[in-house]
Design a protein around this nucleic acid. Structure first.
Lengths: 157, 157
DNA sequence: AGAAGACCTTACGCGAACGTCAAGTGCCCG
DNA sequence: CGGGCACTTGACGTTCGCGTAAGGTCTTCT
């Protein structure tokens, strides 16, 4: 089975990856600046491989769960090690175990937050059913560009 | 049943809450500045009630799941509404539904991240078992204050 | 030829969430 | 009554994760 059939050796432009994952070119270049991805070059232009794409996916996932880019970098490095320094690996291992515990605790937080929000939604629904049932099930922007409230948020940007 | 037995009407100083929840006085004042908590005063000093404490807990939970302080503020406000403007409530409802979806997706991300990390841990363990089995099961700091690596992270703070 | 895109680099800017002084107040303790 | 501690209010500094010009290169279309 020829290699180009097993995996078409496809490459991606920066724009393509951005569209696929919903991020900006600036962000990708920023990640590269931080050493998280290192695409090939065609002249000046960046050329991303499947591997780069996979890394990007991990980066974005990590971000969404609140990892800092530096932490994501450590995790990504792991896949390049192979025969690295044992002490270093031991440190990584301990760190990752900590990370796992943190993530699991975070998952509990999420569950609780969802509960809170869902209870809040029920209360709101009840109220709306009694007053303005036609406003239910609307997407956010279909409702109205909110007028300025008096005591909204004191100095928030 | 007298009230002071049902709930001792206890209050907290800023330091006490900080110790309990592992944050700094600066952070608490910052949240207050943003309108997320409004403790009473004894002269100049802040006096936190059980209610304030509960709000703080929600704030920190929200933070850990990646909510911005402004979003946390909206959620907290909900518990003060009662008979608020219906349109406003409808907007809140839609927003919260969105938030719930986001959180559930985030939960999936966490599950995947945990998988990644756990797989990574297995690989590291295998390697260490073959090379330096005595380093296993150590907490991070018991191992060694890491020596400076050459190509660590190019410009990360 | 000229204009339009898609890419590049450099560099300054920004908002969020605090950290970190500096300077003052109130209260207890020896 | 001086010292120390916990608290206060500014006000400026910092880090992270990019956004946003400004200007240059290369290809491609008309």
């Amino acid at each position: 089975m020829p290699t180009e059939l097993r995996r078409p050796a496809r490459t991606f432009t920066i724009r393509q990856l951005c569209q696929e994952f919903g991020c900006t070119p600036r962000a990708l270049r920023f990640y590269e600046d931080k050493g998280l991805i290192s695409p090939e070059r065609d002249g000046m232009n960046r050329v991303y491989s499947y591997k780069d794409r996979a890394r990007l996916q991990l980066i974005l996932r990590g971000k969404r769960v609140g990892l800092a880019l530096s932490e994501i970098g450590e995790i990504l490095d792991l896949y390049e090690i192979g025969d690295g320094c044992a002490t270093q690996n031991a440190i990584s291992l301990a760190k990752f175990r900590e990370r796992i515990r943190a993530l699991e605790s975070q998952r509990r937080d999420i569950d609780m937050a969802v509960d809170v929000l869902q209870e809040a939604c029920s209360r709101l629904e009840d109220q709306l059913k009694q007053t303005r049932p036609e406003l239910l099930e609307q997407p956010v922007e279909a409702i109205r560009p909110r007028r300025p409230r008096p005591g909204e948020m004191r100095r928030a940007g």
